[in-house]
C-alpha cells in the first residue's frame, strides 16, 4: 500500500501546482495592485490621523493603532524577505507551532524596535536629518540580506552535516532510524536528545553521532538544539526595519507627536507578526500533511530530506543575493 503513496503524492502536488499556475497565478497582478491601493489608503489615513492627534489624542491613539495593525498585516502579505525565510525554514524543518509563533512575533517586534531605535538615535541623539535616516536605513536593510545569505549557508551546512552523520551512523550499526547514540567522547550529554545543550552546535566536528532525527514529529524537536537557527531567523528578519514604521516615525516626529509614532510602529509590528504567524502556521501544517505521505526512515527519504533542506537553504541564499541588488532606499533619490 505504502508504495503507492509517492505516486498519489505526485498526482496531488501536480494537480495543486497546475491549479495554482492556471487560476491563481494570473490573478497575482490584480492582488498586488489591490494590496498597493490599500496600502496607499492606509498610509493616507494614518498621516491624517496623526495630524489630528494634538486635538483628539485618545481617538487618534485608538485609530492610529488600528490602522497601523492593518497596515502591518497587509504589508506583510505582500512580498518580503521575512516570508522567504519563514516558509523555507518551516516547511523543511519540523517545528512546533508555538515556537513558530514566537519566532514570527519576535521577528516582527524586533523590526519595530530596530526602526524606533534607529530613528530615535539619528533624529534625537545625533540630530541628523531625515535624508541621513534614509541613507542609514539602507545599511540595515543590506545587513538583513547579508544575514539571510549567512542563514542560508548555515542551514545548508547543517543539512549536509546531519545527512553525513546519519549515514555514517547507519552504516555503523545497520539499524535504520536508531535512537541510540554512538558517542566517541563525552560532552556531558545523555542519550536523551532533549538534554542536549547549546554546546551541541559547537561539537559537530567531532562526529559525536548526536544526530538530528529527520522524521521526528514536531513535539520531539528539541528547542535548544535549533536555538542558533532561531536566533538567525529572528535576526535576519528583524534587523531590516519595516519601511512603514520608519515613515510613521519620521512623520510623527515632524508633527511633534513622536510617542504616537512609536505606538504606530509597534502596532505595525503586531500586524506584521500576525501575518507571518499565519503563514508560519500554514507552512508547518502543509509540510506535516505532505510528510504523512512519505515513508519514514528509508535511505531514499534521507536523500529527499537532504535535497529539500538544501533547496530551502539555497532559496534563502539566492533571495538574499537578489534582494541585495535591489535599491533599498526608503525615499527616492530625486526627492
Amino acid at each position: 500500500m505504502t508504495r503507492f503513496y509517492p505516486y498519489g503524492l505526485a498526482c496531488i502536488s501536480l494537480l495543486l501546482a497546475s491549479g495554482f499556475y492556471l487560476y491563481v497565478w494570473p490573478l497575482m497582478p490584480y492582488v498586488f495592485i489591490e494590496l498597493q491601493t490599500w496600502q496607499r489608503e492606509l498610509t493616507h489615513s494614518i498621516s491624517q490621523l496623526l495630524s489630528l492627534a494634538h486635538e483628539y489624542p485618545l481617538k487618534a491613539l485608538f485609530y492610529v493603532s488600528a490602522a497601523s495593525i492593518s497596515y502591518g498585516f497587509l504589508h506583510a502579505i505582500g512580498p518580503g524577505h521575512g516570508k522567504v525565510i519563514m516558509v523555507s525554514y518551516l516547511s523543511t524543518h519540523p517545528t512546533k507551532v508555538k515556537t513558530s509563533l514566537i519566532l514570527s512575533i519576535s521577528a516582527a517586534l524586533l523590526q519595530a524596535l530596530v526602526a524606533i531605535v534607529l530613528v530615535s538615535a539619528l533624529l534625537f541623539v545625533l540630530e541628523t536629518s531625515m535624508r541621513e535616516v534614509n541613507a542609514r536605513a539602507s545599511y540595515l536593510i543590506d545587513a538583513s540580506f547579508v544575514a539571510m545569505i549567512l542563514l542560508g549557508l548555515h542551514l545548508a551546512w547543517k543539512s549536509i552535516r546531519d545527512f553525513l552523520k546519519q549515514n555514517i551512523k547507519q552504516k555503523a550499526n545497520d539499524k535504520a532510524h536508531s535512537h541510540e547514540h554512538d558517542h566517541s567522547h563525552d560532552y556531558g550529554h545523555s542519550q536523551d536528545e532533549h538534554s542536549h545543550s547549546q554546546d551541541h552546535d559547537h561539537s559537530h566536528d567531532h562526529a559525536c553521532g548526536c544526530s538530528h532525527k529527520h522524521h521526528a514529529s514536531p513535539a520531539d524537536i528539541d528547542e535548544a538544539k535549533n536555538l542558533k537557527d532561531y536566533i538567525g531567523i529572528v535576526f535576519s528578519i528583524g534587523v531590516r526595519p519595516c519601511s512603514g514604521a520608519l515613515l510613521v516615525l519620521i512623520f510623527a516626529k515632524s508633527l511633534g507627536i513622536y510617542w504616537l509614532g512609536m505606538i504606530g510602529a509597534i502596532a505595525m509590528g503586531v500586524g506584521t507578526g500576525a501575518a507571518i504567524s499565519l503563514l508560519a502556521f500554514v507552512s508547518i501544517k502543509g509540510a506535516a500533511w505532505l510528510r504523512r505521505f512519505i515513508k519514514p526512515a528509508s535511505q531514499g527519504s534521507q536523500w529527499r530530506e537532504l535535497f529539500l533542506r538544501l533547496g530551502a537553504a539555497s532559496f534563502i541564499c539566492v533571495m538574499g543575493v537578489i534582494m541585495m541588488q535591489g535599491t533599498s532606499l526608503l525615499f527616492s533619490p530625486v526627492l
Binding site: Q39, V84, Q325, G326, T327
Partner: peptide
C-alpha cells in the same frame, strides 16, 4: 516559472510614495 516569478516579486521594492 513559479519560482522565477516569486523571486522577481520578492526582488522588488514597492512604492512608498
Amino acid at each position: 516559472p513559479l519560482v522565477f516569478g516569486l523571486m522577481s516579486l520578492y526582488a522588488h521594492a514597492h512604492p512608498h510614495a
